[in-house]
């Protein structure tokens, strides 16, 4: 059974329809990517899944339960976390406070400490800067922090919204390596990207979102090989 199952999801902003009945699923252990141009509805999809935007119609099931109408804190508590578009780390708080907020729903201090140790092991730069105000980190470091903060929740499903945005090509490759690495450790990934080439390169399966509708789906390799997709999203 799918870990995440989105069915006929419809979201309106006032009279504007942002999502026009999209359906897709993410199975346990997969990397699934949602690609599409600016304004296609990718971020809306992500925010609706985690409970920030109420859908107009359709359903979202996670781990076998209907989460369509649940508030976000209950959804997060079921083992879902998100690296939002633009990272949205807490700029005025320290690196340490950001990480602690990532583990907000965990009350067992020993577990939190162990997770922080893990993060510091993977990203030594964050350990070095633990007391630094997060807004003073470089773009790449902020992205590491945003991903670490999401990992602090110990998620089963991690959703990343444009993690490569605004990063240098070298850092972009690094971010995709980290995503693959997290997946290898057992975390299911839903990845939203404009960088379609890279995203399709690591994805088991992919969906193409155009103006609020899913127009194509297939394995990462299939879509990467499709002439139509190449033309529209891969620059030729």
């Amino acid at each position: 059974m799918a870990l995440l199952e989105v069915k006929d999801l419809q979201v309106n902003y006032g009279v504007i329809r942002a999502l026009n009945g999209i359906s897709f699923e993410v199975n346990e252990g997969e990397i699934v990517t949602l690609i599409g141009a600016n304004g296609a509805g990718k971020t809306t999809t992500m925010q609706t899944i985690i409970g920030l935007i109420p859908p107009k119609a359709g359903s979202i099931h996670y781990d076998g339960k209907d989460i369509t109408k649940l508030p976000s804190h209950k959804i997060v508590n079921m083992g879902m976390s998100q690296v939002p578009e633009g990272r949205r780390i807490f700029q005025e708080l320290s690196v340490y406070d950001n990480l602690m907020l990532g583990a907000y729903l965990e009350k067992d201090m020993s577990k939190i400490k162990a997770r922080i140790e893990n993060v510091f092991e993977q990203f030594p730069i964050l350990k070095e800067r633990r007391s630094q105000i997060a807004g003073t980190l470089s773009g790449g470091e902020q992205q590491m922090l945003a991903m670490s903060r999401a990992l602090m929740a110990n998620p089963k499903l991690l959703m990343l919204d444009e993690p490569s945005m605004g990063l240098s090509p070298l850092l972009v490759s690094q971010v995709f390596e980290i995503i693959k690495d997290m997946n290898a450790k057992g975390i299911t990934i839903l990845l939203v990207e404009q960088n379609a080439e890279k995203a399709l390169g690591i994805a088991d399966r992919a969906y193409v979102l155009t103006n609020g509708v899913i127009t194509h789906q297939g394995t990462g390799a299939e879509l990467a090989g499709s002439e139509e997709i190449k033309k529209a999203y891969l620059g030729g």
Partner: peptide
């Protein structure tokens, strides 16, 4: 502090 800076991001942390 988190809610004060970015309500949406705070909700994503599981903050009610």
């Amino acid at each position: 502090l988190a809610v004060s800076e970015d309500k949406g991001a705070a909700q994503m942390m599981g903050i009610n």
